[in-house]
């Protein structure tokens, strides 16, 4: 029976490795390759760790299979009388320690870019694209009035504290320009939520009482799925939304349409004031 069990334990680890190997082909893998520069770095890190852990997994399972097989076929009267080996202990302490420390230090720059505010792309920081407020069970979006230029940090803070008359509002549909870093200010109106765009590899909790800046960059123009990743009540699964990344021009047009939708009452303006009409309204 010993041989059978040795093979049994080897067999399951082979199945595990094969399952991982065929996963990308079967569609049990990332929804797409990362579509943001930061996401690509995260994917690279993922694959680096995947290779290291796969080698370790195979190594330990092979070692396990070997010692089991040897045990099953052991014809000696007695087991080996050994209390261990100092040099082996030293080796298998130092080698993993270096590998782990390497992984730990190697990834710090990616984290810095994503979360340390002084490393954020400054253009994005100076002109936040929107404020996103999570709520049971929807995402509310507030864009600053088109043409609104923020004069420094305190101006942004003022805008975050106090809605302004020209602000544009939508729900569950965030539009951003593609191919450049954009920044949103994330907050929660009620309980905790989490802003998660799988394809862009972005996730940030929305915490009641906090305003958290989040930046990301979509490298393609398309609609990305956007979900909630922190339990927020019975309708947690329903916080379905999308982030539409589009060219600068499309984005401007979108904001313009939004503005018309929100402020245009449909009454035709007088001929001589038609050019100025929109501006008046948006003030």
């Amino acid at each position: 029976m010993g041989k059978f069990w040795s093979i049994f334990f080897i067999f399951w680890s082979i199945v595990a490795v094969v399952a991982v190997a065929i996963s990308p082909a079967m569609g049990w893998w990332f929804p797409t390759a990362a579509e943001s520069p930061l996401g690509e770095q995260i994917d690279d890190l993922f694959f680096l760790i995947l290779y290291i852990t796969t080698i370790t997994f195979i190594g330990t399972q092979v070692a396990m299979g070997y010692v089991l097989w040897r045990g099953a076929t052991n014809t000696d009267d007695r087991a080996e009388f050994s209390h261990g080996s100092h040099s082996l202990e030293v080796i298998w302490t130092i080698v993993p320690a270096f590998i782990l420390l390497f992984i730990a230090l190697y990834q710090i720059p990616v984290w810095e870019q994503f979360r340390i505010q002084s490393h954020f792309p400054q253009d994005a920081v100076n002109s936040p694209i929107a404020e996103v407020t999570a709520r049971q069970f929807e995402w509310r979006i507030r864009y600053p009035a088109p043409g609104r230029v923020f004069k420094g940090k305190s101006d942004i803070e003022r805008w975050l504290k106090q809605p302004e008359p020209g602000d544009l509002y939508t729900v569950n549909d965030l539009h951003v320009p593609s191919n450049k870093p954009v920044l949103i200010h994330l907050r929660s109106g009620d309980v905790q939520h989490s802003f998660f765009i799988p394809d862009l590899r972005v996730k940030q909790d929305a915490v009641p009482g906090m305003v958290i800046p989040v930046w990301f960059e979509a490298s393609r123009s398309k609609a990305y799925e956007w979900v909630c990743a922190e339990l927020c009540g019975w309708g947690h699964y329903k916080m379905k939304a999308r982030v539409v990344a589009e060219s600068d021009e499309d984005f401007k047009n979108y904001l313009h349409e939004l503005e018309l939708e929100q402020f245009d009452d449909g009454v035709p303006e007088l001929a001589d004031s038609s050019a100025a009409g929109e501006e008046e309204v948006s003030e």
């Binding site: 995260i42 890190l45 992984i103 990616v110 989490s194 972005v202 996730k203």
Partner: peptide, 15 residues
């Protein structure tokens, strides 16, 4: 180890 790596955890957290 995947989750200990903070950048990777950004994606895996709460999945």
């Amino acid at each position: 180890i995947f989750m200990a790596a903070v950048p990777v955890d950004i994606y895996f957290h709460d999945t």
